[in-house]
Write a protein that binds this DNA or RNA. Structure first.
Lengths: 249, 249
DNA sequence: CAGTGGTCTAGACCACTAG
DNA sequence: TAGTGGTCTAGACCACTGG
């Protein structure tokens, strides 16, 4: 006995149609950021499919960053993205305030570790040398948006972790307490899926696409001062960058 | 009658364990880029779960960019990422060759359209003015990696589309035929899910995370010359950028 | 408590790929 | 033809949220 499927072969998959329907509603403005979308059961009934099929449509849109799901509450249209410059690092706190939002920083951890092979190479120190580690969670209006970990050679900034203001601007502390001014940096931007750690702190599902920034910052002499990697919620952030020197082909 | 589930409540979900197992195998090197991973049925049997549960683990890892699935063939570990500079735009062809790979460009479309409100603003032309549109697919070793669409005011480069070499370097053509040299550009980088169009040309599933670049390039006088948006496969690309001028907080 | 999303099963038919 | 992934069903129990 054949199981009845509510579509003919070679037609658009059913979960695809539901997804398209929801996307259209978002584009037209019927569904706005923050709105609740119909529940899995409601969609299943509306489109005459099983709950698992409706669920797949919602899961796809969630993984894509269009929707956010909250157990026990419902599924909601995701808010719009914030923008951050890769060129002038004006700092998170300053940057968010300028947009009229409320920034908050939570220091998750501070300590020191031996550099190890990989970081020793990037920071131009010995593999046994001590690095300060500073892990901070950046929140906007109470919502965690970025997870930043910075590594600084302890030799360059003795007793760094006892300084005040680390929850605001690390660069400000480096400048005011140690006379270290960062002059330039190399950065790498990529998409990575959230791992367990990022997932927990940013409160997104594991595997959610995040923007990962890796940065090596140097002072005017070219000496590496900071190695940092940051994870930004891909559904909430976009980066801007300016090219001034253009190399011809 | 209760359905038997092969785990106690409050324990790690089964699909999660399978995912972790595969990730560990990839990290340890047991599974290398290009390798085939066990099929859905094999994993289901190995972990004593239903096929749908094994499938969810594979789907998660695929959406995250760790795996690639090919119907009728199997599921494979994804290859490693290519790197591209956001600072010196040396051009795709040149860039890929330098890595010892074989670049190829396919012109998908070339024509002209009225600017419209949005693009007129970015390119500083009237909304009725004509723009040339050039859509190109960039491939490496036969695999499509990026989809680029460029818009150039027709007034700046009359008969642009009849020029040769457009499948190589647009900037080279602008420089050699029209004396236009691009001096700087503003770019926006973000993660977006693949839509139907990108999905088809880049041969990835809809919703796959892509890196989207939007660029407005200007000549030395500051006149906007090109508006472009490009979609790069997020699992194959990473961008590098250099900061030289550092703004203090 | 009812409603939500999260997990899981044991089946089914299909399209695609390779030998 | 056998094996793969793609789609889909009709159930089930669970944890979490709110009133």
């Amino acid at each position: 006995m054949a199981i009845v499927t509510a579509r003919k072969q070679n037609e658009t998959p059913l979960h695809n149609r539901i997804r398209t329907h929801l996307l259209a509603a978002m584009k037209s403005g019927q569904l706005r950021p923050g709105d609740r979308v119909p529940s899995e059961w409601q969609l299943a009934e509306q489109f005459a499919v099983s709950r698992m099929t409706a669920r797949q449509a919602l899961s796809d849109l969630t993984m894509s960053g269009y929707l956010q799901r909250r157990r026990g509450k419902g599924t909601f249209v995701a808010p719009e993205k914030l923008e951050q410059s890769l060129g002038n690092l004006t700092g998170f706190t300053h940057d968010i305030r300028r947009r009229g939002l409320t920034p908050h920083t939570q220091v998750l951890g501070a300590g020191s570790i031996p550099a190890g092979r990989r970081m020793a190479l990037a920071l131009d120190v010995g593999p046994e040398e001590s690095l300060y580690v500073l892990e901070r969670l950046r929140l906007v209006d109470g919502e965690p948006l970025a997870l930043e970990t910075a590594y600084i050679p302890a030799r360059l900034a003795p007793a760094l972790l006892t300084c005040e203001g680390l929850s605001e601007s690390l660069y400000k502390v480096l400048a005011e307490h140690y006379g270290i001014r960062l002059a330039r940096a190399a950065q790498v931007v990529e998409v990575v899926p959230a791992g367990p750690h990022e997932s927990r702190h940013l409160r997104v599902g594991e595997g959610t696409p995040l923007l990962r920034l890796e940065r090596v910052a140097r002072d005017a002499t070219g000496r590496p001062v900071e190695l940092a990697h940051s994870y930004y919620r891909g559904d909430r952030y976009r980066f801007t960058t300016d090219m001034s020197r253009w190399k011809e082909e």
